[in-house]
Design a protein around this nucleic acid. Structure first.
Lengths: 228, 228
DNA sequence: AAGATGCGGAGCGGATCGCTCCGCACAACT
DNA sequence: AGTTGTGCGGAGCGATCCGCTCCGCATCTT
C-alpha cells in the first residue's frame, strides 16, 4: 500500500471520528444516555459498523466523550486563571464552560462507569475553577455572597440548551443560529447578575460541594462529604 | 352504597390522582417523554391498572399534564400583572414560572398532540407575560435591552433542574432541599442581572417570537412567523 | 485478476414498553 | 353467611426498540 493512500485513509478516519464525536455529544445531550447508537451513527453520516470498529461498545464511546468534556472544562478553567484580569478571567471561564457543554454531560454522569482518569480530571478542573472564583471575589469584582459551587451550578443550569434542541428537533435548522445567539445573551445576563454590589443579598447559605457527591467519583469510593 | 363511603372513595381517588400527576410530572421532566408509564405508576405508588382507568392512554396523561402546566404559567403571569409594583410583579412572574416548571415540559412539546385549548392557553400566557415585561421595562426597572422573548428563554433555561434530578437519581434524597435552595439563589442572580443599568449592553439583537414557532401550535396550522 | 482493507447496514437475541385483563380485597346489601 | 358491586394491583401479550455481530460490497494495490 502506498504511503499517500495510507495517509489519505488516516485523514478520512479522523474526519469520521470527529463527526462521530460531535454527533454523539449532540445526541446524548439531547436525548440522554439512553439514546441509541444507531441515531448517533446516522447523525454522523457513518454506518453502524464503522462506529463499532472505533469504539468497541456504547459505554466506551460515552466514556471517551466524558473524558473530552472534562478536559475542555479543565482547559476553560485554566485559561480563565491565566487571564491576569480577575473579572475577565472569571467571565471567560464561565462562558467557555457553558458553551463547551460540560453541563450537558451531567445527565450522563452516573450512567457511565467513572475511570480514575475522569475522577482526576474532574477534581483538577473543580480546583482550578474554585481558584478563579475565589480570586474574582477577593478582587471585589464578584459579588461576595457567591460561592464556587454556585458558579458550577449556574454553568450546569445554562449548559443545556433546550431551545436549541427543540428547534433542531422540529427541523428548523434555520433558527439554530438565532437560538444560540439568544443563549449567549442569557449568559451575559447571568454574568451581570454575578457582578459586585447586588441590590440585595442572596437568600440562604451558599451551597456545598456535597451536592456533587458521587458525580465524577469512582463507584467503589465510600460516599464522603466533599465532592471536591 | 352509603353516602359516607362514596365520599371516602372519592377522596382516595383524588389523592391518587394528585400523586399520579406529581409523579408523572417529575418522571417526564427527568427522563423526557419516553419515560415508561410503569415508572410513573410505581413512583406514584399506584398500580398500572389504576392509572389506566383514569387516563385511557399515555398521551392523554401527557396532554392533561401540559394543560395543567400551561394553566399554572398563565396564572403566574396574571399574578405578576396584578401586582401594582412593576418590578415586584415581574419578579413574581419569573420566579413562579420557573418554579412551576413550565420549561420542564418544553422538551415534551412536539411529542404530544397540541389541542386547541393548549394553543389558546399558551397564547394567552405569552400575551400576559409580554405585558408584564413591557410594563417593567417602561417603568425603567428592567434593563432596556431585554426582550419578552429573552425572559421566556430564561425561564425555560432555568426551568429544568439537572442538579435536583441527578441528586434524586442517585438516591440522595437528603440533598434535595439543598439543591432546590441553590437553584433559588440562581434565580435571584438572574433577576439581578435583569435589573436596569447594566454594566454593558447585551450582544446582538433581541430574539424574536419566531423561535417558538410550532411549540404550542396546532399541527395543521401553517408554520407562520409569529409564535405569539 | 486476485488480494487487502475498511465501510454500510440487515438482522438477531434480548430488553422494554404501552396496554389489556383478570384475580383479589373490601365494603354494602340481603 | 352469602352475594353483589367496585376499584385496585400487576402478570403478561404483542409490538417495538436497542446493542451488537457479521457479511457483502466498494475501492484501491499489486
Amino acid at each position: 500500500m502506498s504511503e499517500r493512500h495510507r495517509r489519505a485513509r488516516r485523514e478520512e478516519v479522523e474526519r469520521n471520528d470527529e463527526a462521530l464525536l460531535r454527533a454523539a455529544r449532540a445526541v446524548f445531550s439531547e436525548d440522554g444516555a439512553h439514546a441509541s447508537v444507531a441515531s448517533i451513527a446516522a447523525r454522523a453520516g457513518v454506518g453502524i459498523g464503522t462506529m463499532y470498529r472505533r469504539y468497541p461498545t456504547k459505554d466506551a464511546l460515552l466514556q471517551h466523550l466524558c473524558r473530552l468534556s472534562l478536559e475542555e472544562y479543565l482547559a476553560a478553567a485554566q485559561a480563565g486563571l491565566a487571564d491576569p484580569d480577575p473579572w475577565g478571567g472569571f467571565a471567560h471561564y464561565l462562558t467557555a464552560a457553558v458553551l463547551c457543554g460540560t453541563g450537558t454531560l451531567g445527565s450522563i454522569a452516573g450512567t457511565v462507569a467513572v475511570t480514575d482518569e475522569m475522577a482526576d480530571l474532574s477534581a483538577r478542573g473543580d480546583a482550578v475553577a474554585s481558584e478563579v472564583v475565589e480570586r474574582a471575589r477577593k478582587a471585589g469584582v464578584l459579588r461576595p455572597d457567591i460561592n464556587d459551587v454556585d458558579v458550577v451550578l449556574l454553568i450546569e443550569q445554562l449548559g443545556r440548551s433546550p431551545l436549541v434542541e427543540q428547534v433542531v428537533r422540529h427541523g428548523r435548522t434555520d433558527l439554530v443560529d438565532a437560538a444560540e445567539r439568544a443563549r449567549e445573551r442569557l449568559i451575559r445576563v447571568a454574568l451581570d447578575g454575578l457582578r459586585a454590589e447586588p441590590a440585595e443579598p442572596l437568600p440562604g447559605p451558599p451551597p456545598e460541594w456535597a451536592l456533587f457527591t458521587e458525580r465524577w467519583r469512582r463507584r467503589d469510593a465510600e460516599p464522603g462529604s466533599s465532592g471536591r
